[in-house]
Amino acid sequence: MQGTGEGIPVRDKRGTGQGPPAPGPTLGAPEGAAAEAPLPAEPEVEVQEGSAPQEKPAEVSYLDDLRRVQAEFANYRKRVMRDQAAASSRASARLIERLLPVLDNFELALTHGEGTEGDAGIELVYRQFKEALGDEGLEEIPAHGVAFDPTVHEAVEAREAAEVDEPTSVSVYRKGYRLKGQVLRPAMVVVARPVELSPTAGEPVAAQDDPDSADGQG
Rank of each mutant, 00 (worst) to 15 (best):
I122P: 01
A52D: 02
V191C: 04
G118T: 08
L100F: 00
R98S: 15
V172Y: 05
D12S: 14
Y177C: 00
I8N: 09
I96V: 14
T200W: 01
Y62D: 13
K13L: 12
R174L: 12
G7C: 01
G202Y: 05
G19K: 02
V170C: 02
G218A: 14
I122V: 12
E46C: 09
E160D: 13
T116H: 01
E203G: 09
G113D: 04
T16N: 09
D149T: 08
A214H: 12
T4N: 13
S61E: 11
A120T: 09
A120I: 03
L108R: 02
D215L: 10
R77F: 15
V102L: 02
L95T: 12
V190F: 01
P199Q: 13
R67M: 14
R14M: 03
G218Q: 14
A161V: 03
S198A: 09
G137E: 09
L124C: 09
L197M: 06
P57M: 07
A155T: 00
T151Y: 05
P211Q: 07
L138N: 02
L103Y: 08
E123H: 13
D165E: 15
A58V: 07
R77P: 13
A86W: 07
P30H: 14
L179M: 09
A206L: 05
D215R: 10
A91P: 03
I141E: 01
E31I: 11
D135H: 12
P53V: 13
R82Y: 05
R94P: 04
D165V: 10
L63E: 15
L27E: 10
E6S: 07
P150M: 04
G202R: 04
A132P: 01
A158D: 07
I141D: 01
G113W: 08
R67Q: 11
K175V: 15
G134K: 03
E139Q: 11
G137C: 08
A109L: 04
A206I: 05
D165K: 09
S92K: 08
G3S: 12
S171V: 00
E31Q: 10
E196G: 05
A29E: 02
T168W: 00
K180E: 05
V80S: 09
G24T: 07
P194G: 07
A201V: 03
E114S: 12
R94I: 06
A132Y: 11
P150C: 04
G28L: 07
Q84M: 14
V195Q: 06
V10P: 04
V190A: 00
V205Y: 10
L110G: 03
P142T: 06
K175F: 13
G50E: 06
S88M: 03
E72S: 08
P194S: 08
S198R: 11
T4L: 15
E117S: 12
L39F: 14
Q128P: 05
E160G: 12
E131P: 00
A71P: 15
L108Y: 01
P150A: 09
M1G: 11
I8K: 08
E72C: 04
S61I: 04
